[in-house]
């Protein structure tokens, strides 16, 4: 239950941080905004670790880290996302971008869940389809104009 609540809250904080970062970008460049986002995040996480985290840190299994060093670089993957979004935001209508990235994110999430955690169920597939439908419904008026912009030959 706590995991469910935290997952919902992660979405809330994504929107809040996006709004604040967008506000910051007005005063500086996108690159500087991205840098400050990670820099302030690093400072904050170090402070939290010093005050709360040291006692809660388990004995680190170095063997696991050396066996799978790629788990150390999850944070650096996010820069790929930032870099690509900076390119795409001016090339794809925002709704199409949202739908495409979310759909691939959730479907790939299902694939990775099976690959890494062995999690899979038919209910999950059906639920994902319903969630995608809900997202499309909430975006629907813009979705129609996106379709027209992607198929100019068929537009009125």
């Amino acid at each position: 239950m706590i995991a469910i609540v935290l997952s919902i809250l992660s979405g809330a904080t994504i929107v809040l941080s996006r709004q604040v970062n967008g506000y910051f970008t007005k005063y500086t460049s996108a690159s500087t905004s991205t840098f400050m986002n990670y820099f302030t995040g690093l400072i904050s996480s170090i402070i939290v670790f010093i005050f709360y985290g040291i006692s809660l840190t388990p004995h680190i299994n170095v063997a696991k880290l050396t066996a799978s060093p790629i788990i150390l670089f999850g944070g650096s993957l996010s820069i790929i996302n930032v870099f690509l979004l900076n390119i795409l935001v001016s090339r794809i209508p925002p709704v199409a971008l949202t739908l495409t990235t979310f759909t691939t994110q959730i479907i790939s999430g299902m694939i990775f869940d099976y690959a890494f955690y062995g999690i899979f169920s038919p209910n999950k597939c059906i639920g994902i389809c319903i969630v995608i439908a809900g997202l499309i419904i909430s975006q629907m008026p813009a979705t129609r104009s996106v379709y027209r912009s992607l198929t100019p030959g068929k537009s009125k």
Binding site: I4, S7, S10, A12, I107, M110, K124
Partner: peptide, 18 residues
Amino acid sequence: KVGAASLTALSLGGQMAV
């Protein structure tokens, strides 16, 4: 605990609401 797909879906719900 919930997996990446469920995290994405729940996060979407939170994003939409906010």
